[in-house]
Computed example of a mutant assay.
Amino acid sequence: PTEAGHAALSVRSARELEVLAVFMRRWSHVGIERLLSGPGLLNTYQALCGIDGVAARHDAPAAIALAAQRGDDPQAVEALSMFCDVLGSVAGDLALTFGAKAVYLAGGIPAQIADFLLASDFAARFVDKGVMGEVLQRVPVHLVEHGQLGLQGAASWYMEHNAAG
């Protein structure tokens, strides 16, 4: 158990740096979850719309993800692509940090965008860690597509901590 989502967001492309600059004007600390979460997808989309000087057409993460998958909103496509790319970088960083033998992507967004994720630069960003890239090439990444995983985790925690004994 960690709170890795609150670690500082690290970016690597000029466009990601532009988005980070927008975030930094809004928050004193920009954690990973400011981009890698449902609200983070909305943050990213709104930042890109502002940078590009266009009106945001969507106000919910699901709508942004759907528009991106349809390909009918350039900022939605870019926001979801950035989500996937940064997710690859963060997953690779965490795999190295914790010595992971495998990585499991869970949560609402990855399962809903599986085809988009597979077509993205997620895999390239996951292994793009210099000399450690060869190590990460041997770490399998699995997509968990279980809709009730969070509920099961909460129930398990409750049972462990509140079971009559």
Rank of each mutant, 00 (worst) to 15 (best):
R34N: 13
K101A: 14
T44K: 04
L35A: 13
G133K: 04
L96P: 01
S156F: 15
R15G: 02
F23I: 10
V30T: 09
F83S: 09
V127Y: 07
H6N: 13
L9Q: 06
V86Q: 08
S37Y: 06
P39F: 08
G147E: 14
A111V: 04
E18F: 00
M132N: 14
A100V: 12
G99F: 00
A47S: 10
G99D: 02
W27G: 02
H58G: 02
G40P: 04
E78C: 11
A67Y: 04
G107H: 02
P61M: 12
Y158L: 11
G31T: 10
A155C: 15
Y158N: 11
A60M: 06
V90G: 03
N162G: 09
L117F: 06
I64C: 02
A65C: 08
G153T: 09
V19Y: 00
A164H: 13
E134Q: 12
P110W: 02
L35Q: 10
L87N: 01
A47V: 06
A154T: 01
A111Y: 09
A60E: 11
G71Y: 04
M159D: 14
Y158E: 03
L151M: 12
G31W: 03
L9G: 00
Q75H: 12
A7L: 15
D72E: 09
A119V: 07
L117W: 10
P39L: 06
R12Q: 13
G147F: 09
Q112T: 11
A4N: 14
D52Q: 15
F23Y: 11
F126K: 01
S13K: 04
G153I: 05
L41N: 00
G38P: 08
G133Q: 04
Q75K: 13
D93T: 10
P1N: 15
L35D: 05
H6Y: 15
N43S: 09
G38T: 05
F83V: 00
A163M: 12
V11D: 08
G133Y: 01
G88E: 03
E3G: 12
V141C: 08
D52K: 13
R15F: 01
M82G: 01
L9M: 05
L80T: 09
L66V: 13
S13F: 00
